[in-house]
Design a protein around this nucleic acid. Structure first.
Lengths: 222, 222
DNA sequence: CTATCATTCAATGGAATAATTGAATGAGAT
DNA sequence: ATCTCATTCAATTATTCCATTGAATGATAG
């Protein structure tokens, strides 16, 4: 067991990290953590896991070095250990997209392919927002918005979007975003708003990628 | 099981890919495949696995879309499905390096830290080889060399290096490379050649990364 | 057509992992 | 100090995964 070469030891370590990524619940937890720091309770609630189960998955990821935890009062807050975790998730996504036919099917059937293609790049959004002719719309829940959002973004969670259409200027083009490339919220927001006659597109990816690109993020509620 | 949202389905697919990466033997097989196409028998022999075991791991990776197979006569040849597989492996390495302390320890204790730091970049090697003042030394076994190597490279496998020192020009600087960032061969070659008074450095990474960077690769034995 | 060889399949036992339950810890609040 | 609450630990069961064995394909060679 222990008389292996250095290569075996390294591969074993890499395997631990990969294996830890190899569970849907943990990937979902990581997607949540990509939004920002979260307590165990919130994570469990957002992912639909039991507290104990979420706790154990989180600890396993901590052991693998994917996340870090911090205690504040009676809450324990978890966060991604490093930006490189986002990178490996992105790389994983690419492999799965290119190689697993089923993924593409799912994406095409659940999401509108055109919307994906017409997504606004971060660079384009930056340019346009300098001119001021764009409404940046964050359709995530309030708590995620409060933890961090794009500068100047308006927060109208998808659930209440229909009721708060009056807050949006129909003359301005809208760019909607949410958690990441596979977050359903912004897709549905685009569909809903287009049905009402708004001119609206999706931002490519979501907040975590924006932050990882080194672009400014504002925290606190508006 | 089936009444899940699209997100769960996607995460489940990603998890399959990650889980497939989560085993040391499969990572070792992938490192071999990164060198080029290989038959099951050769892969089993190079990794020290039984034929049946190697076959099953390979099939699992094929199901996950990580590798592709092709039959030629009585042999079945496997290869990486896509360059993106190399990307995800690289990302995995970064995460493991940054987060798992043990990895760094292993790297530092088995390899010479200075050699890692003094590695020659691909760009630098290209520049220097245009001037012609560099001997490019491939220390992998003959069969791997035959499958693909750097243009103008000399192949002296590490095992026979001591016996074939005469083939190297002591006046020229030598740049040694092998399979990848954690391949021991080039580290040992550097150590051995320095002890003999040669001026020698390692190439960063190895052949797969060279190929992935879009740089030219020659196949066939010299 | 039979023999041979590389690979795959099928089945086994053994090990690791996942989710649930209920109890234990550790920090604030009363 | 005692109580409350968020989190973790410990123990259990069900499930999945791993490596080995020997038999079954599928292709070439004689």
């Amino acid at each position: 067991m222990s008389s292996q070469g250095p290569k075996q030891v390294l591969f074993a370590q890499f395997a631990v990290v990969a294996k830890t990524l190899g569970h849907a619940h943990r990937l979902e937890l990581l997607e949540q953590l990509a939004q920002g720091e979260r307590s165990v309770e919130v994570l469990a609630q957002k992912t639909g896991l039991s507290i104990a189960n979420a706790s154990q998955h989180l600890q396993q990821m901590r052991r693998a070095g994917l996340v870090a935890s911090r205690r504040d009062g009676k809450f324990v807050y978890y966060q991604l250990a490093d930006d490189s975790v986002l990178d490996v998730l992105a790389a994983l996504r690419v492999v799965a997209e290119r190689s697993v036919a089923e993924v593409e099917q799912v994406v095409r059937s659940y999401f509108n392919e055109r919307d994906a293609l017409e997504a606004v790049s971060r660079e384009e959004l930056l340019q346009r927002s300098r001119v001021g002719a764009v409404t940046v719309l964050d359709v995530r829940p309030e708590d995620e918005f409060a933890l961090g959002h794009l500068p100047g973004a308006v927060n109208i969670p998808l659930r209440v979007l229909e009721r708060r259409l009056a807050e949006l200027d129909p003359a301005n083009e809208i760019v909607a975003y949410c958690r990441g490339p596979y977050c359903v919220l912004s897709y549905e927001a685009v569909a809903a708003l287009r049905a009402r006659g708004f001119k609206v597109r999706r931002l490519e990816d979501g907040l975590p990628e924006w932050r990882a690109a080194g672009l400014p993020v504002v925290s606190g509620s508006a």
